[in-house]
Design a protein around this nucleic acid. Structure first.
Length: 851
RNA sequence: GCCGCGAUAGCUCAGUGGUAGAGCGCAUCCUUGGUAAGGCUGAGGUCCAGGGUUCGAAUCCCUGUCGUGGCACCA
């Protein structure tokens, strides 16, 4: 009996897969296709456990679908542009390109060690001219279509990374990467018209049935579509034609004042002649930067002294206030305030003594007595105090008010989005150059496609802050493609989220002359199962959806949604350990002792007691990391893969523990023991029916578990079945059991293949399977065999369990009743009671209602 | 404030109308030529709380508590 040795078996099987080119994706129209993709990694240097879990999940699906007869595409690439490379350049004086490719080499080796069933022939990195040159080509196509444009705008400037960030990349007023407080700057920027697709991006969410609701809700919130009315107030200049946006035109008769943002043009006009107003505006600008401060900030306002006429009553003059809670970049930067039915407006009016007139009467309230106190009423009701709107419900009044305004020519129904256009300019060198030149005569001119790619100069000087392309002595000087005169190249590069917004389509044919090989893309797309972190719920996933739609409209793609199925996996966490002085301690330095059920930790060597802290996401700063290579070294790749999936549902965080991975490792060894102890000359006796039934039940359960992304459940069933096999050992087994074991082991080797592929190959060979398990079909189950012949039915009396009986599977109610009533134990429990009713649930349970 | 998600054994989690389960941990015992290991057996659960529906609720519904994620002066 030989011990299982992953160090010997695992590399051997990886070589066998590679030698037979087992994972090459092939267009085969006779079979259904399946495209499984995990979000490609940024080549940061080393693989971490999160990668192991993410890529193992995708691999489970890929191997499972292959065994089920699908033509599978499972590719890998590198999201290789980005700031860390430039930061490394600055900190250590290395070349970003060389640094990136070294990282890719190391991470590729680690990914290959993980035994992933990837078609490596399609690998690319986004920093290759062969990739980003194609990106420049379609970027020019979208420019032709008006979806790419330049605009002077106020942007989010990250003073640490020295670059512009999109709104999506600013979290709580800080840069998503640097954490620096964001400043507002006015710059000339490249942008993409994602707002042209805002409606579609919301509407099509409904078609994404295999996306988590959570992600759909997050995108919907982010796009923030609202329907309402845009209309103009009239007044004396400068307050003539003041346009506001509202979602509550039904409450127009409850108006108290008109509010404008501090940076609204009208506010600036007022400030020009009113120093007090100027002071107020300056104070607003100084205001709070973080969300928490904004939330608690008091509502303040300044009465400009201007008035405008109410649209439905020209004699009604409304005062115009500058208000700090009105935002310039949403709607029109101006509102009308109805304090009775909007909390913000109410707070403001109470503070400044402005009138509060209710116009929506809640159901059951008396119009003579209903009053609004300190809480605005935002619920349903009937409109009153409102002239021609009286008696209507809210929806009816909205429609009537909009119709009246439109009839007056003062405005129209409008849809407003929270989503802004996507600013894609970044002042960085290590990114995709934007293929335009600036000419004194012709202005902004696209680089002709036959001159693509526009690539980086070789002698680029990194190592200082700011944009190295801008600093380069010669690179930006060129000639205008139009007039031949002197021109300068655009030195901004594209946001790296552009790189990741179409890579899934490039994988259809990674070597195509066109950006996207449409025939290949038509076959493979959409991605059937996309897997990645929830942190990309808005940024990456929204941009990829937008670019897909834009390229589809340009005829370069047929699908309008890139990812038919999305799965967001949880993170890997680990306990944290600290010394008494607060220093973090790495797990490998910790020794544990147990006192009953209490665990205590000590520092290895000195024995100093340690504090066991919270379970947190693995991070270098808290030293609670375990690296894949040290785990592979001790337990093998299969045990590591198995453990990342076995303990938690895939969408939830999984806690890494030494005990847990040891459990997985023991499973690997015990599996091998079962296979190794099975005699080679298989018995031809009729198989033991009970073990057969258990086998078919197992096949069914594991198949359903993988199909529904419940990997941990499937693995739990495999653990249980292994216990059953151990209870029916090969040693001293009857011929019937041996025959059933043979069938069970043949299925078992294939069922574990998605999770522990190396072990599966070894087992498959040992049990006499033909060829490699990667080519073997998924085992089938006989539905009839997944049911037991005899059932043990619990018997309840008045809902409490009082005994059990044995009945044939599928026994009818009448037969079961007879068995129950004949049972002496149950008869005892029924003594003195009258049976009112007997409920028999077929094959499940019997309940006797008695009194 | 709004919208989600979660709460089951000491820990991490399955179970989603019908007999409360797994892995790890813990305890007893066995093995001491698989040995910085292996195995047997076992203990351990008001299924967060309260109410409702039902013959029957961990499971479905309502309310609450605690934890957690997202959005947020978005008119």
């Amino acid at each position: 009996m030989a011990r299982y040795n992953p160090k010997e078996t695992e590399p051997r099987w990886r070589k066998a897969w590679s030698d037979s080119d087992a994972f090459r994706a092939v267009i085969d129209r006779s079979r259904p296709k399946y495209y499984v993709l995990e979000m490609f990694p940024y080549p940061s240097g080393r693989l971490h456990m999160g990668h192991v879990r993410n890529y193992t999940m995708g691999d489970v699906i890929a191997r499972f679908k292959r065994a089920r007869g699908f033509s599978v595409l499972h590719p890998m690439g590198w999201d290789a542009f980005g700031l860390p490379a430039e930061n490394a350049a600055m900190e250590r004086g290395v070349d970003p390109k060389a640094w990136t490719y070294e990282n890719i080499d190391r991470m590729r080796a680690e990914l290959k060690e993980l035994g992933l069933s990837i078609d490596w022939s399609r690998e690319f990195a986004t920093c290759e001219p062969g990739y980003y040159g194609k990106q420049q080509a379609w970027f020019l196509d979208l420019y032709e279509r008006g979806l790419v444009y330049r605009k002077e705008s106020v942007v989010n400037w990250d003073p640490v990374d020295q670059t512009v960030l999109a709104n999506e990349q600013v979290e709580d007023g800080r840069g998503w990467r640097s954490g620096a407080l964001i400043e507002k700057r006015k710059l000339n920027q490249w942008a993409m018209r994602i707002t042209d697709y805002a409606d579609q991006l919301v509407d099509d969410l409904a078609t994404l049935e295999r996306w988590p609701d959570k992600v759909r809700v997050m995108q919907e919130n982010w796009i923030g579509r609202s329907k309402g009315l845009k209309f103009r107030f009239h007044g004396a200049p400068p307050a003539d034609d003041l346009e506001v946006y509202t979602t509550r035109p039904d409450t127009l008769f409850g108006a108290s004042f008109v509010g404008i943002a501090a940076d609204h043009p009208l506010a600036e006009a007022v400030a020009a002649r009113d120093p007090e107003a100027a002071r107020f505006i300056a104070e607003c600008r100084k205001g709070a930067a973080t969300e928490a401060q904004i939330e608690t900030a008091e509502k303040i306002g300044y009465d400009t002294g201007l008035t405008v006429k109410h649209p439905f009553d020209p004699t009604w003059e409304l005062p115009v206030w500058i208000a700090n809670f009105v935002l310039m970049d949403y709607g029109t930067g101006a509102i009308f305030a109805c304090p009775a039915h909007d909390q913000r407006d109410l707070d403001f009016c109470r503070k400044y003594g402005l009138p509060v007139k209710p116009v929506v009467l809640p159901p059951g309230e008396d119009p003579a007595t209903f009053q609004v106190g300190d809480e605005a009423y935002t619920g349903p009701g009937t409109i009153y105090n409102s002239g021609f709107l009286d008696g209507l419900d809210i929806e009816g009044a909205k429609a009537a008010a909009i119709a009246r305004i439109e009839g007056q020519g003062d405005g129209e129904g409008a849809v407003v989005f929270r989503l802004r256009d996507w600013g894609v300019s970044r002042q960085r060198a290590w990114g995709c150059p934007i293929p335009f030149v600036h000419c004194e005569t012709d202005g902004v001119v696209p680089v002709p496609k036959d001159q693509l790619p526009v690539s980086h100069p070789d002698d680029i000087e990194f190592g200082k802050s700011g944009n190295a392309l801008e600093r380069h002595p010669t690179w930006k000087h060129t000639t205008c493609p139009k007039c031949g005169g002197p021109a300068t190249r655009e030195t901004d590069t594209l946001d790296t989220f552009v790189d990741s917004s179409w890579y899934f389509a490039r994988f259809a044919n990674a070597h195509s002359e066109e950006a996207i090989d449409k025939d290949a893309a038509d076959y493979w797309l959409p991605v059937d199962q996309y897997i990645g972190g929830i942190e990309h719920a808005v940024l990456h996933l929204l941009y990829a959806r937008f670019v897909t739609k834009a390229l589809a409209d340009d005829g370069q793609l047929s699908v309008r949604e890139p990812f038919a199925g999305l799965f967001t996996q949880g993170m890997i966490t680990h306990e944290t350990y600290r010394r008494q002085n607060g220093e973090w301690v790495e797990p490998k330095e910790v020794e544990f002792t147990a006192e009953g059920n209490t665990r205590r930790a000590r520092l290895g060597g000195t024995g100093e007691p340690l504090i066991i802290g919270d379970v947190e996401k693995m991070s270098k700063s808290k030293k609670n990391t375990v690296t894949p290579d040290e785990i592979f070294e001790v337990y093998g790749v299969d045990a590591a893969r198995l453990f990342t999936l076995s303990d938690s549902p895939p969408e939830r965080d999984a806690q890494w523990t030494t005990g847990g991975v040891q459990g997985a490792w023991r499973f690997v060894n015990r599996v091998w023991e079962e296979f190794d102890s099975q005699p080679a000359d298989a018995s031809t006796a009729p198989a033991d029916p009970e073990l057969r039934r258990a086998t078919h039940k197992l096949i069914r359960q594991v198949t359903e578990a993988i199909d529904s992304f419940r990997f941990n459940s499937g693995i739990a069933r495999l653990y249980e079945f292994l216990n059953l096999l151990k209870a029916n050992p090969a040693k001293a087994a009857s011929p019937a059991v041996l025959a059933a074991r043979q069938e069970a082991l043949s299925a078992f080797a294939r069922l574990i293949a998605p999770f522990t592929p190396h072990l599966a190959e070894e087992c498959w060979t040992r049990v006499g399977g033909s060829g490699m398990v990667v080519h073997a079909p998924w085992p089938d189950f006989d539905p009839a065999l997944t049911e037991d012949a005899v059932r043990t039915l619990p018997v309840q009396v008045n809902g409490k369990r009082r005994g059990e009986i044995v009945a044939p599977a599928g026994a009818e109610a009448a037969d079961v009743e007879q068995i129950v009533l004949a049972d002496p134990e149950i008869a005892g429990k029924l003594e003195g009671l009258t049976i009112r009713k007997i409920i028999v649930v077929k094959d499940r349970i019997v309940n006797i209602v008695a009194s």
